[in-house]
Computed example of a mutant assay.
Amino acid sequence: MIVLTKDTMQILREQDVVPFRNRVRELAVKIGMSLVNQTKLITAASELVRNMLRYANGGKVILEIISKSAQSGVRLTFVDEGPGIADVKQAMQDGFSTGRSLGLGLPGTKRLVNEFDIKSAPGQGTTVMIIHWKNGR
């Protein structure tokens, strides 16, 4: 996998969400991603950034345009130093929530993107990496 561009954004308050979403859209447009795939990527990214604000008081996102086997995509890595997730497997189940929500955030996000990886442990924060390929494959 080749990283073509790399940028980092700090997400520390609600006002950081719109510029972040705009930056994600810029990267998706730059690689020629369809409107449907842009929408999936931006929706997933919005959910993850809001989780980062809600549960960890913010963090940072690494935004990259990547290339692999002649296809391009956008990779976003969300890193926080929050309380972590005690049971990642449980958190990935539809309907599970610790924040009085519908519990569709993490599993819903995973369904919207092509690749999804989460690493978390209590007291060690959470890192979520998503990739959405230009052609959604």
Results as ranks from 00 to 15, higher is better:
residue 93 Q to E: 15
residue 17 V to Y: 05
residue 128 V to S: 05
residue 108 G to D: 04
residue 81 E to Y: 13
residue 77 T to C: 02
residue 95 G to I: 07
residue 17 V to I: 15
residue 118 I to S: 03
residue 116 F to H: 08
residue 29 V to E: 05
residue 27 L to A: 07
residue 96 F to G: 04
residue 63 L to A: 00
residue 56 A to L: 02
residue 98 T to E: 15
residue 57 N to E: 08
residue 98 T to M: 14
residue 112 L to Q: 01
residue 65 I to M: 02
residue 69 S to V: 06
residue 107 P to T: 06
residue 87 D to Q: 10
residue 93 Q to F: 09
residue 21 R to P: 02
residue 21 R to D: 03
residue 59 G to W: 03
residue 39 T to H: 09
residue 49 V to I: 14
residue 7 D to F: 12
residue 45 A to G: 05
residue 24 V to F: 07
residue 48 L to Y: 02
residue 109 T to S: 06
residue 9 M to L: 15
residue 40 K to Y: 12
residue 56 A to G: 00
residue 118 I to L: 12
residue 49 V to A: 11
residue 53 L to Q: 01
residue 40 K to Q: 04
residue 53 L to V: 11
residue 65 I to T: 12
residue 35 L to N: 06
residue 25 R to F: 14
residue 29 V to D: 08
residue 52 M to G: 04
residue 107 P to C: 11
residue 14 E to D: 10
residue 83 P to C: 13
residue 33 M to D: 03
residue 41 L to V: 12
residue 68 K to C: 08
residue 80 D to T: 03
residue 54 R to E: 07
residue 98 T to G: 05
residue 92 M to S: 05
residue 12 L to E: 10
residue 127 T to E: 05
residue 78 F to D: 01
residue 36 V to C: 04
residue 52 M to C: 09
residue 71 Q to Y: 03
residue 129 M to D: 06
residue 85 I to N: 02
residue 40 K to M: 09
residue 104 L to D: 04
residue 111 R to V: 07
residue 61 V to M: 03
residue 26 E to L: 12
residue 23 R to L: 10
residue 81 E to I: 10
residue 86 A to D: 11
residue 32 G to L: 01
residue 42 I to G: 03
residue 85 I to T: 00
residue 70 A to W: 11
residue 66 I to H: 08
residue 71 Q to L: 08
residue 37 N to F: 11
residue 111 R to E: 08
residue 75 R to N: 02
residue 119 K to A: 07
residue 67 S to W: 05
residue 12 L to S: 14
residue 65 I to E: 11
residue 40 K to E: 06
residue 48 L to N: 01
residue 97 S to K: 11
residue 25 R to G: 06
residue 9 M to W: 09
residue 51 N to M: 02
residue 35 L to E: 14
residue 46 S to E: 13
residue 39 T to N: 11
residue 109 T to C: 08
residue 124 Q to T: 02
residue 119 K to R: 10
residue 69 S to D: 13
residue 68 K to S: 05
residue 19 P to L: 09
residue 68 K to A: 01
residue 40 K to C: 02
residue 119 K to F: 07
residue 67 S to M: 13
residue 23 R to A: 11
residue 12 L to P: 00
residue 70 A to V: 14
residue 78 F to K: 01
residue 77 T to W: 04
residue 68 K to T: 01
residue 78 F to L: 06
residue 6 K to G: 12
residue 92 M to A: 04
residue 29 V to L: 06
residue 117 D to E: 15
residue 54 R to C: 09
residue 14 E to C: 05
residue 119 K to H: 09
residue 40 K to S: 07
residue 56 A to N: 08
residue 47 E to C: 05
residue 125 G to L: 08
residue 57 N to D: 13
residue 45 A to P: 06
residue 4 L to D: 03
residue 6 K to L: 14
residue 45 A to N: 05
residue 37 N to M: 09
residue 94 D to G: 10
residue 88 V to W: 01
residue 121 A to N: 09
residue 134 K to E: 14
residue 112 L to Y: 05
residue 38 Q to N: 09
residue 101 S to A: 14
residue 116 F to L: 07
residue 33 M to K: 14
residue 12 L to F: 10
residue 28 A to Y: 00
residue 93 Q to L: 15
residue 126 T to M: 13
residue 37 N to R: 13
residue 89 K to W: 08
residue 27 L to S: 00
residue 8 T to S: 12
residue 107 P to H: 11
residue 106 L to Q: 04
residue 47 E to Y: 02
